[in-house]
């Protein structure tokens, strides 16, 4: 049986983008969100569990800097976690406009990624998520790219290549920082060999936290970046 027939027999495996605030753990690990505790003491205790300083107590409330969260799960189950995947947030500038809302090309640059963000990015081209249906394509050359997608905390030895890739892109261009590392340095930066995320090297337009952000969140972020939907 040829692969062609085998492919046809597999049928359509692409899923509709699930909506809602209560996605299963199979699709997203979720992100901690602002939680009110009974006492200030309790809030401080929760905050002390966080290894990256993503949690910050203000009186009885614990606020979350999602860019810093590395999903170590240590604040679970006390801290409340959001279970959606619409996590992206504009840092600077706005979405692409005009002709660039229908179809965009994305150049991924690995600036020190541990491999999980890249693994999730690989899923985007898979049957389950099928990024192509939104007119978004991954391109091997920055010359044809509209979006620079940075993963990893930006290591010192990837700093120059990353800058070169950004400079090689034609305007208009946008930079999307994917993952806790690219958003804030994550567990690695800022440190002796790592910057505090992509913003240290190139102007970041959209930040997507998560360690790693699941494919759904990346789809939302890319669609937000080309103006196909608004970030939550």
């Amino acid at each position: 049986m040829s692969w062609f027939i085998r492919g046809l027999r597999a049928g359509v495996l692409t899923e509709n983008l699930p909506e809602g605030q209560n996605l299963p753990a199979s699709l997203t690990p979720g992100l901690p969100r602002r939680t009110d505790f009974a006492t200030e003491q309790e809030a401080l205790e929760i905050t002390s569990l966080c290894p990256t300083g993503a949690l910050r107590a203000e009186e009885r409330a614990v606020h979350v800097t999602s860019e810093r969260c590395v999903e170590c799960m240590r604040c679970k189950p006390e801290q409340d976690w959001r279970r959606d995947a619409d996590w992206a947030r504009f840092a600077d500038g706005g979405p692409l406009e005009g002709a660039f809302t229908r179809s965009i090309h994305v150049r991924i640059v690995d600036a020190g990624d541990c491999g999980s963000c890249l693994s999730e990015l690989a899923q985007l081209n898979g049957p389950s998520y099928n990024l192509h249906r939104f007119g978004i394509f991954i391109t091997p050359t920055p010359r044809q790219a509209d979006v620079l997608l940075v993963v990893g905390p930006v290591t010192r030895q990837m700093l120059d290549p990353l800058k070169l890739a950004y400079e090689a892109m034609p305007a208009p261009k946008r930079v999307l920082a994917v993952g806790a590392c690219a958003a804030s340095g994550g567990v690695f930066g800022p440190s002796v060999m790592c910057a505090a995320g992509a913003a240290d090297a190139v102007p970041v337009d959209l930040v997507l936290p998560g360690c790693p952000p699941p494919p759904l969140a990346i789809v939302h972020a890319l669609r937000a970046l080309c103006g196909q939907e608004r970030p939550a």
Binding site: V109, T141, D160, P161, L162, L164, A165, A168, A171
Partner: peptide, 12 residues
Amino acid sequence: TSRSPAWSGGLS
């Protein structure tokens, strides 16, 4: 027209 060096995979 904007000119930039040839893309060489980030190698420089």
